[in-house]
Simulated assay, not measured.
Amino acid sequence: MSDDSGSGYVTGGEYSRDSNYITDRITADGSGGWPVEAGRYRLVVARACPWANRAVIVRRLLGLEGAISMGMCGPTHDERSWTFDLDPGGRDPVLGYERLQEAFLARFPGYDRGITVPTIVDVPSKQVVTNDFGQMTLDLSTEWTAFHREGAPDLYPEKLRDEMDEVMQRVYTEVNNGVYRCGFAGSQDAYDQAYARLFTALDWLEDRLTGQRYLMGDTITEADVRLFTTLVRFDAVYHGHFKTNRHKLTEMPVLWAYTRDLFQTPGFGDTIDFPQIKEHYYVVHADINPTQVIPAGPDTANWLTPHGREELGGSPFGDGTPPGPLAEGEEVPADHGPGGIGHR
Rank of each mutant, 00 (worst) to 15 (best):
M1H: 13
M1L: 09
D4R: 10
G8N: 09
E14P: 02
D18I: 04
N20Y: 06
D24S: 12
A28W: 11
G30P: 12
G30Q: 14
S31Q: 08
P35I: 13
A38R: 15
A48V: 15
A52N: 14
R54A: 01
V58D: 08
G90E: 05
R91A: 03
P93R: 00
V94A: 02
L100Q: 03
L105W: 10
D112M: 08
T116N: 04
V117T: 10
S125F: 01
K126D: 01
D132W: 10
Q135R: 13
D139V: 06
T145D: 01
H148E: 00
R149V: 09
P157N: 01
P157E: 04
M164K: 02
D165L: 15
Q169D: 12
Y172W: 15
V175S: 00
R181C: 07
Y191I: 05
Q193V: 10
A196K: 06
W204Y: 09
E206Y: 09
L209G: 15
M216K: 01
D218N: 09
V225K: 10
V225T: 15
F228C: 03
T230C: 05
L231I: 03
D235M: 04
A236K: 05
R246C: 04
R246G: 06
K248M: 03
K248I: 05
E251Y: 00
M252R: 14
M252A: 09
A257G: 02
F263R: 02
I272P: 10
V283F: 00
P290F: 08
P290V: 05
T291L: 05
V293P: 12
G297W: 08
T305P: 07
P306N: 08
H307M: 14
S315Y: 13
G318T: 13
G324C: 07
